[in-house]
Write a protein that binds this DNA or RNA. Structure first.
Length: 625
RNA sequence: GGUCCUGUGGUGCAGCUUGGAGUGCACGCCGGCCUGUCAAGCCGGAGGCCGCGGGUUCAAAUCCCGUCAGGACCGCCA
């Protein structure tokens, strides 16, 4: 990432003949004019050194009191902008600076033009300095001068190019869809734009180009893509920008789930392979085909639908082995209640403090699951347990609540199921099958981070498939679409008519990498009668479908090809490829956590005149009584 | 909507647990010295509503309550 993009030759102009970083020893003896920022100053009184910085790099200027410009340069503050002229000279060998690409030469200044004077800056322009997020965002243009963010923006530009050229080569047509569109009732909160021409009416910024891309399929485009801006008025996270973000939105006609997987795997492997060229990203490993997990398996074995598969530690199923077979009531009763018993190995977790286990049990309890544990002891004379193997220690000495209540054989069953070693701990849960793994999954992630189990050079992509079509909403006492109402139910109309809604799966899939949800996609429902039946289960009549998605509804009556698509998050992918923990690091001008732009001051109040023109009146929120 | 962390000269921190004068460190800034530095060096100096408001106390950066700002998370994100 320290390498810069190669620059094309620069035409000589009034300010400079060449970029500072492009000057080489071959220029020694020539007069050059250069321009840039004063990055550092080393004033020896009778001799002055300046690091001249521009986009291309740094070159040392040297100025002597008997030469023109010395007074000016010694007076100027750091980060002032100058254009200087002089002769490129070779340094004495003892004065070489190996840290600088231009460290064997310097420019002996004999003419200075001040282009812009800098006041004292709010923070140093130093890539190594730790500056608060707030200051960085408020002065983002200065933060950019520090360098690392610009390197990431270069990688961002390169990623966009790679995506565009690859998908274009694969026959996808890049099409931009409207930014001002209609509000749709489903999904996230919309950003609304009041219409001046039509009082009381609003445009909405698209949450995704979902309906447009499906209409493109009906329009016979067959393969579409776009690096699409998406707008959602929802709360942020480190991996979720507030307000706006970009997706590599793509859709394919006459395509199955397999076709989408194949295209996306090619795309991902392509960008993972190509982006590191030129030092724009760390070198990572990823290989296709990506492993697949059903949603049900993922939730059972990893306690989440976005598992980090860079390390093992799957959650073990113990329901059959222990349920109904022990004296311990919570295990004894599990089968009768339809509950599951699950377990997770904690490597070298035996000596963890009691409060850590208690915290786990508390967290489990909060989600309606009983948590317990076993702590396996190291056999005497074997301090770290690294040599002993489980099969050499048929009866591991153990403590913890389960050890007191289970027989040796039952403890052994658990130990073997999770592959625990002496000195390990085993966490267990008992609860409803769809929830029992969740607290274990949370611990799995935490343990993975703490113990550094994940290889940072690996990108462990995987597909999560077969999401349920519906989920039961306890509040409304009704079935909700669990993901996307546009997805095709597996089994089609027949499944909708005959199956229990909770058992219907959708052709809905996620691409997950290293525990991050990279994208959601689906085979779309292109048949009006199936759509009607699908909405009926969610409690909506046919008129609701027509009202909510009028264009799509109508279009599907005029010959719609079966189609499928997906939309990998562009910013998230970049964050992953560049090892960044926060999206703001890969965005030029990001909003802060609270969706404020500290640089531009958005959102802000507008004039009465503007409001009047838009037929709007502000009603201040009433204070809570 | 909620939970947690942070807020101290321009920047980054320490001080807070156990209240006792705005005490300290590094960088920056201003002035002086300095002809081979590249994190230049040396000497001197300036710079503070300890986020803001209230409370407890003889006494608050420190303890309590509220509030604002920044960050992490839960809810939310079809």
């Amino acid at each position: 990432m320290t390498d810069r993009l190669s620059h094309p030759p620069l035409a000589q102009n009034a300010y400079r003949a060449i970029r500072a970083g492009d000057v080489t020893e071959s220029y020694v003896g020539r007069r050059l004019r250069l321009a840039g920022w004063i990055g550092a100053k080393r004033d020896h009184g009778g001799l002055l050194f300046i690091d001249l910085r521009d986009t291309g790099g740094v070159l040392q200027l040297v100025s002597h009191p008997d030469r023109a410009g010395f007074e000016t340069l010694s007076r100027l503050r750091l980060e002032s902008v100058i254009s200087v002229e002089g002769e490129i000279v070779a340094r004495d060998e003892k004065d070489f600076n190996p840290k600088l690409a231009t460290g064997t030469i310097e420019l002996a200044v004999d003419s200075v033009e001040v282009l812009s004077v800098a006041e004292v800056l709010p923070f140093p322009i130093d890539p190594a300095a730790e500056i608060s997020e707030e200051a960085r965002m408020r002065y983002r243009y200065l933060d950019l001068r520090r360098g690392p963010v610009v390197a990431r923006l270069q990688a961002r530009a390169r990623l966009a190019q790679l995506v565009r050229s690859h998908l274009s080569d694969r026959g996808f047509l890049e099409i931009t869809t409207p930014i001002l569109t209609a509000s749709s009732p489903e999904g996230a909160r919309d950003f609304l734009v009041p219409s001046r021409l039509y009082p009381g009416e609003f445009y909405a910024l698209p949450q995704a180009p979902q309906q447009f891309k499906q209409l493109l399929m009906v329009g016979g485009i067959e393969r579409y893509f776009q690096i699409a801006p998406c707008f959602r008025d929802e709360a942020s996270r480190a991996d979720r920008s507030p307000g706006e973000f970009y997706q590599i939105d793509l859709e394919m006609a006459f395509a199955t789930q397999e076709d989408v997987f194949d295209e996306v795997e090619q795309l991902m492997v392509h960008v993972v392979t190509e982006l590191p060229e030129g030092g724009l990203a760390p070198v990572k490993r990823a290989k296709a085909p990506f492993p697949r997990l059903t949603y049900a398996d993922a939730v059972t074995r990893y306690g989440t639908d976005k598992p980090d598969l860079r390390f093992d530690l799957a959650i073990a199923e113990l329901t059959a082995a222990l349920g109904g077979a022990t004296e311990l009531p919570m295990f004894q009763l599990a089968l009768d209640k339809g509950h599951a018993i699950r377990a997770l190995r904690v490597p070298a977790g035996g000596p963890r403090p009691r409060r850590w286990f208690d915290a786990f049990a508390d967290a489990a309890n909060k989600s309606g699951v009983i948590g317990s544990w076993l702590q396996l002891e190291n056999p005497p004379g074997d301090a770290d347990g690294s040599i002993a193997r489980a099969d050499e220690q048929p009866k591991l000495p153990a403590k913890g609540p389960l050890a007191r209540k289970l027989t040796d054989d039952e403890v052994q069953t658990i130990v073997e199921a999770v592959g625990a070693l002496p000195g390990d701990a085993v966490l267990t849960t008992v609860g409803p099958p769809h929830r029992a793994s969740q607290p274990l999954g949370a611990q799995r992630s935490a343990i993975g981070r703490e113990l550094g189990l994940a290889d940072p050079d690996e990108l462990a992509f995987c597909w999560i498939t077969d999401f349920p079509m519906y989920e039961w909403n306890d509040e409304t006492r009704d079935w909700d679409f669990s993901h996307n109402p546009f997805s095709m139910p597996q089994g089609g109309l027949d499944a909708l008519q005959t199956k229990d809604p909770g058992d219907i799966l959708a052709f809905q899939y996620d691409l997950v990498c290293n525990g991050l949800e990279l994208s959601s996609g689906a085979v779309r429902n292109h048949q009006p009668e199936v759509m009607e039946a699908a909405f009926a289960i969610a409690g909506y009549g046919p008129e609701r479908v027509q009202q909510s998605f009028p264009a799509l509804w109508q279009a599907f009556h005029y010959g719609a090809p079966p189609h499928a698509g997906i939309a990998p998050g562009f910013d998230r992918l970049l964050m992953l490829l560049l090892d960044q923990a926060n999206l703001r690091e890969v965005i030029a001008f990001p909003l802060n956590q609270s969706a404020r732009d500290l640089l531009m001051g958005a959102p802000n109040e507008v004039s009465e005149q503007q409001l009047k023109e838009l037929h709007l009146r502000v009603v201040p929120p009433t204070a809570p009584s």
